[in-house]
Simulated scan of single mutants.
Amino acid sequence: MSDPAPVRSTGIGSWPGTDLTEAVKIAFAECPDLPYLPELPQRGPAAGMIGRATALLHELPVDLQPAGWRLSDSSGREHRQARAVLRSDLDQLEEQAQGYAGPVKLSVGGPWTLAASMERPRGDRVLADRGARRELGQSLAEGIAQLVLDLRRRLPEVEWLVQLDEPLLPAVLAGGVRTASGLHRHRAVDRPEVSGTYGQLVERLEAAGAATPVLVHCCAADVPVELLRRAGVTGLMLDVDRADSRTWDQVAEALEAGTLIGLGALRTDRGREPGRPNARGVADRALRPLRALGLGPDVSGRLLVTPACGLAGFDRAGAIDALRAVREAAEIVSEELAR
C-alpha cells in the first residue's frame, strides 16, 4: 500500500503592500505545494476583493460611488482601472511562473458576496433583485471561464484552481445582510437559488472547455458545507475557530465524499501578534476537529492548512512568517495523522 498523500498548505489571497511581483515570488517560495496569485488591496479599491471581481464581469459595466461599487450603464474610471490592474497582475504572474508546472490558485470575490456588496443602478443592493442576482452570477461565471482559458494559453503547464471568496454567504442565507439604508435587512435567499448559482458556474467552466476545480472560501460562521458540496464545488475552506459541531459533521461527510477541505487554523483577525506564529499551535488547531471526528491518514491528501483569512492586516515580515507557520503545520498534521 502506498503512503497517503501529504497535507498541503497555501495562502488565502490578500497580502500587505503594493509590490505584486514580490508578493508572487513569496507565494511561490513559501507555498510550494499550492502557490497562488496574491491580492493587494492597499493599492486601492480597484485592487481589492470586490474591485478585482468587477474586472472579471462579462459585459456588465460598473462604477464606483461613495457607497461602493454599483452596476451602471457604462464603466466608470475605477472599473477601467480595475481591469487594467488585473491585466497587469496576470502579466506579472505569467512572467514569474515561466517554467513552472503544477497547481496555482486564483482568488475571486464570489457571486453572493458581490450581490451583497454591490448596488443596483437605482439604489439598494443587487441582492434585493432576483433578476440582477442572476445577471451578476452569469456575468461573473463567463468572466471566470474566459480568465481560465486565457491563463491556460499563457501557462499551459499550470493546473489552475479558482477560489471564490464568500465571507457574506452565511448572511445571505440567513437574511442578515443590511439594506443600503442600514435600517432593514434583506430577505434570505432560498438555498436552491444559492446552490444553483455555483452549479451554473461549474457548468459554464465545463462548457467553455475551462473545467477547473472550484473552491469556496468562507471565514464566517455557519458555512453551508452540504449545500456547497451538493452544488458541485471541488472544495471549501473555513475558519476552524468559527465552525461548530454541526459544521464539522458536514465536513467529515464532505471529506469522505472526496471534497477538498481547507482548514483555516492560523488566526488573522488580530494582525501580527508579538513573536513568530507557532507552527505547533497551528497544527493543533487543525488536528483537534480531525481527531474528534476520528479521521485518519486516508483524508490527508484532501486537506489544506491555511491562514483563516487573508494577510493584508499583517506587515510583510509577519505575513511571510504566517505562510511558513502553516507550511510547517501541514507537515506536522501529516505526521500526526499517519501515526
Score class of each variant (00 low, 15 high):
L303N: 02
L64M: 07
S334G: 04
P167G: 10
P61W: 05
E78A: 15
H79C: 15
D63C: 12
L140I: 07
R134A: 07
R272T: 09
D91W: 08
P213D: 14
P35Q: 00
R242C: 11
G51S: 03
R291L: 12
L168T: 12
L57R: 08
L260Y: 09
R288L: 07
A84R: 14
R246E: 15
D298T: 14
I261L: 12
E203A: 15
S245F: 11
T113A: 09
N278F: 10
S2P: 13
S75Q: 08
D165S: 03
A141G: 08
V126K: 00
L60D: 06
S139N: 04
P170A: 06
V299L: 01
F28C: 03
I144E: 02
P32Q: 05
C218H: 01
P111D: 11
Q92H: 14
G11M: 02
G109D: 02
A23N: 13
L20Y: 09
P6W: 05
S107V: 15
L147C: 02
P297S: 15
T268E: 01
R291T: 11
Q163V: 11
G296R: 14
W15C: 11
T10Y: 02
R204F: 05
D284Y: 09
L161G: 07
A97K: 08
A116Q: 06
P38T: 11
V305F: 05
R8Q: 09
P16F: 03
V24R: 04
R152F: 00
A101I: 05
G301L: 07
Q250N: 14
L20T: 10
T197G: 06
P35D: 00
A319H: 01
G51Q: 02
G318N: 11
H58Q: 12
E157W: 02
V62M: 12
D150V: 01
R133S: 03
Q200K: 14
L20I: 08
S107K: 15
Q163L: 13
L149Y: 07
V62S: 09
L155V: 07
L255K: 05
A254N: 11
L86W: 02
A116I: 08
Q92E: 14
Q96K: 13
V202G: 07
R324F: 01
E78I: 11
Q200I: 08
S2F: 09
D165V: 03
E39D: 07
L255Y: 05
S14Y: 06
A132S: 14
P277W: 02
A82Y: 06
L293M: 01
D63R: 12
T212D: 04
Y198R: 10
L287E: 06
A27W: 01
E142V: 08
E256W: 09
V225N: 13
T268S: 00
E78Y: 13
Q146I: 03
S72A: 13
G109C: 09
E328I: 00
V223Y: 04
E94M: 12
S9Y: 00
V177Y: 13
L71H: 01
A115F: 10
D63G: 06
L127G: 04
V214C: 06
A53P: 02
G48S: 10
E335K: 02
R285N: 02
A286K: 04
L337N: 04
L295Y: 00
Q65T: 14
E203S: 14
A23G: 11
T10F: 00
A128L: 02
A207Y: 11
G176C: 15
L86C: 13
E331C: 03
L205W: 07
G235C: 14
G232F: 11
T113N: 08
P41F: 01
G182C: 04
R70D: 03
